[in-house]
Simulated assay, not measured.
Amino acid sequence: MAAREYGQYDGVARALELVGERWALLIVRDLLVGPRRYGELAAGLPRIPSNILAARLKELQAAGVLRRAPRSRVVVYELTPYGRELEPLVLGLGAWGVKALGDPREDQIVTPDAMTISLRTAFRPQVAAELPATAYAARLGAAELLIRVDGPTLDVTGGSGPVDLAFTAGPGIHRLMTGELAPERAIATGVVEVLRGRGDLLDRFADTFHLAA
Rank of each mutant, 00 (worst) to 15 (best):
residue 69 A to R: 15
residue 70 P to W: 06
residue 71 R to M: 12
residue 72 S to F: 11
residue 73 R to Q: 12
residue 73 R to K: 12
residue 74 V to M: 09
residue 74 V to W: 06
residue 74 V to Q: 13
residue 74 V to R: 13
residue 76 V to K: 04
residue 76 V to A: 09
residue 77 Y to A: 00
residue 79 L to W: 05
residue 79 L to T: 11
residue 80 T to R: 07
residue 80 T to I: 11
residue 83 G to L: 00
residue 83 G to Y: 03
residue 84 R to I: 01
residue 85 E to F: 03
residue 85 E to A: 13
residue 86 L to E: 02
residue 87 E to P: 01
residue 88 P to L: 05
residue 89 L to E: 06
residue 92 G to D: 09
residue 92 G to M: 08
residue 92 G to K: 09
residue 93 L to A: 14
residue 96 W to K: 12
residue 98 V to G: 00
residue 99 K to H: 14
residue 99 K to T: 13
residue 99 K to F: 03
residue 99 K to G: 15
residue 100 A to F: 15
residue 100 A to E: 12
residue 100 A to Y: 13
residue 100 A to M: 09
residue 101 L to C: 02
residue 101 L to K: 07
residue 102 G to Q: 10
residue 102 G to C: 09
residue 102 G to E: 08
residue 102 G to T: 07
residue 103 D to F: 07
residue 103 D to I: 04
residue 104 P to R: 07
residue 105 R to V: 03
residue 107 D to I: 02
residue 108 Q to T: 10
residue 108 Q to E: 15
residue 108 Q to N: 04
residue 108 Q to W: 12
residue 110 V to I: 10
residue 110 V to N: 03
residue 111 T to K: 06
residue 111 T to R: 12
residue 112 P to F: 07
residue 112 P to W: 05
residue 113 D to I: 00
residue 114 A to P: 01
residue 115 M to N: 00
residue 116 T to H: 02
residue 118 S to Q: 08
residue 119 L to W: 04
residue 120 R to K: 15
residue 120 R to E: 11
residue 122 A to S: 08
residue 123 F to Y: 08
residue 124 R to K: 14
residue 125 P to I: 06
residue 126 Q to S: 09
residue 126 Q to F: 08
residue 127 V to E: 09
residue 127 V to Y: 01
residue 127 V to K: 00
residue 127 V to I: 14
residue 128 A to H: 00
residue 129 A to D: 05
residue 129 A to M: 04
residue 130 E to P: 02
residue 133 A to N: 08
residue 134 T to M: 03
residue 136 Y to D: 05
residue 139 R to T: 15
residue 141 G to L: 06
residue 141 G to W: 06
residue 142 A to K: 10
residue 144 E to Q: 15
residue 145 L to C: 09
residue 145 L to W: 11
residue 146 L to R: 15
residue 146 L to V: 08
residue 146 L to Y: 15
residue 146 L to W: 15
residue 147 I to C: 06
residue 148 R to C: 04
residue 148 R to K: 13
residue 148 R to E: 14
residue 148 R to T: 14
residue 149 V to F: 05
residue 150 D to M: 00
residue 150 D to E: 15
residue 151 G to F: 10
residue 151 G to S: 11
residue 155 D to K: 14
residue 155 D to S: 14
residue 156 V to D: 02
residue 157 T to I: 05
residue 157 T to A: 14
residue 157 T to S: 15
residue 158 G to P: 05
residue 158 G to F: 08
residue 161 G to T: 06
residue 162 P to S: 10
residue 164 D to H: 12
residue 165 L to V: 06
residue 165 L to D: 03
residue 166 A to M: 11
residue 166 A to N: 08
residue 167 F to C: 03
residue 167 F to I: 08
residue 167 F to S: 02
residue 167 F to H: 05
residue 170 G to M: 02
residue 170 G to A: 07
residue 170 G to W: 02
residue 170 G to L: 01
residue 171 P to E: 06
residue 172 G to N: 06
residue 173 I to A: 07
residue 173 I to G: 03
residue 174 H to R: 14
residue 175 R to L: 15
residue 175 R to D: 11
residue 176 L to W: 08
residue 177 M to F: 12
residue 177 M to K: 09
residue 178 T to F: 10
residue 179 G to Q: 13
residue 179 G to D: 13
residue 181 L to A: 05
residue 183 P to C: 10
residue 185 R to N: 04
residue 187 I to E: 14
residue 187 I to Y: 04
residue 188 A to F: 13
